[in-house]
Write a protein that binds this DNA or RNA. Structure first.
Lengths: 227, 227
DNA sequence: ACAGATATTAAACGCTCGTTTAAATAGCTG
DNA sequence: CAGCTATTTAAACGAGCGTTTAATATCTGT
């Protein structure tokens, strides 16, 4: 299927001359990132990754022990920017909910591999990233979101008759689900949730959500709407 | 892992005496239903199904041609009740949105295999039920939901400044996503979305959604709330 | 310059998968 | 009752998987 085989760097057996700038380690991680995050751990074979990286499957064993070791190393690199962002965001006091929706949807839409990783390795019961995702991301991000909702309630901006945790769950649902089903929703909905359509989704989500959880019946459609 | 092997009906080679009520065909479909809908097509082997059905993998080839044939036959049976319900519901004029939310969430929660099927065979790009799901379910159910929203707008009960298709997408998101992430949300949220908690989720979803899309600022928290 | 240490390929290993085949036994038809 | 059809088991097949090994070539430190 994927005939994207990179030509092999070294044609003969034995340690290659160092003149050719050949970082097999990095090439394997890059290929793994491409393939694992697109098709999931199971569907990608060690030979496919090795071929895409221009080397042999024995190099996976040499540098990472086995296929799982390569997956973990790749994932650690891929996820690091977000865990760092998460630790940094712990200090910031309080974002307004529209900004959170905007940032959340845009981040997921801009990195399509996030949805693929969720679908392949988090949602299935035997997902290879499920436990780590819950431990390092969900259980840190979700309480922050609940905290924002609770603060909004304390300040009188949000309804107090709703469970803050359920409100947070609804926010995540409205943000994540449309992008998870994006590829199958396109033919049914009639649009692709890209570009201006994504802006429209964000404005819609803010409006629908805020006028549901806002205490005042102000009915302010949020700012970012574009005609 | 799964040591649920049924004892073989026939111990000797050759056609068995008809006295023993042995419906291998039905047993295979039942075992396939159990295993495929729980773990997904790929993770379940033909030998596992045959063993669970108390027979041999050659019987899959004999009755269904191959593993895929068994999967399709099983799925046709499993989904039939819903496609029939769908055809019947086409005649009914208009449900109110709270009833739709209630029915939708309860149906998914009462049939856990629906979520598993979505996660394993619809959401992934190569899912074995993806095309059929879009064709026979999504593209029939979703327009009905859009129609309900549009009728509510015409009757003045719902806001007119929101895109009806996006409202429908939000409704589906709020209904489906919490149950899709149920097993990973449990430790993060602190509850399991079962029993009374499910009732609370339904009431919450109705309240949050309606006060977002209702034109009047009446703020009627919907009925079904239980303390 | 020599002796490890390091990096690489090609080949093979053992395993499991879906599938096929051969043989065996019972039912069915005339 | 003879012959054909239907149903089943056990065994094997070929392919593909992740992984391991043996050989080989280069680099590095003394």
């Amino acid at each position: 299927m994927s005939g994207a085989r990179a030509k092999r760097w070294h044609s003969r057996v034995g340690r290659p001359p160092s003149q050719a700038a050949n970082d097999v380690h990095a090439a394997l991680i890059a290929a793994a990132r491409h393939l694992f995050l697109k098709h999931g751990y199971q569907k990608v074979t060690a030979r496919q990754i090795a071929t895409a990286a221009g080397t042999t499957p024995a190099m996976i064993h040499y540098y990472f022990g086995n296929k799982m070791g390569l997956f973990r190393a790749m994932l650690h690199e891929a996820v690091q920017p977000f865990t760092r962002l998460l630790s940094a965001a712990k200090a910031t006091p309080s974002m307004d909910i529209s900004s959170i929706i905007d940032a959340h949807i845009r981040t997921i839409a801009a990195n399509p591999w996030i949805v693929s990783l969720l679908v392949h390795e988090v949602l299935p019961e035997g997902g290879k990233f499920r436990a780590a995702f819950v431990r390092e991301i969900a259980s840190r991000l979700f309480p922050m979101l609940v905290g924002v909702v609770e603060q909004g309630r304390r300040e009188g901006r949000l309804r107090t008759d709703l469970d803050a945790r359920l409100v947070a769950l609804s926010i995540v649902s409205l943000n994540v689900f449309p992008l998870v089903v994006r590829s199958i929703a396109a033919p049914v909905l009639g649009f692709k949730l890209e570009g201006a359509e994504l802006d429209r989704l964000i404005a819609h989500t803010s409006s629908l959500l805020l006028n549901g959880i806002t205490a005042e019946p102000t009915k302010t459609t949020h700012s970012r709407a574009r005609t």
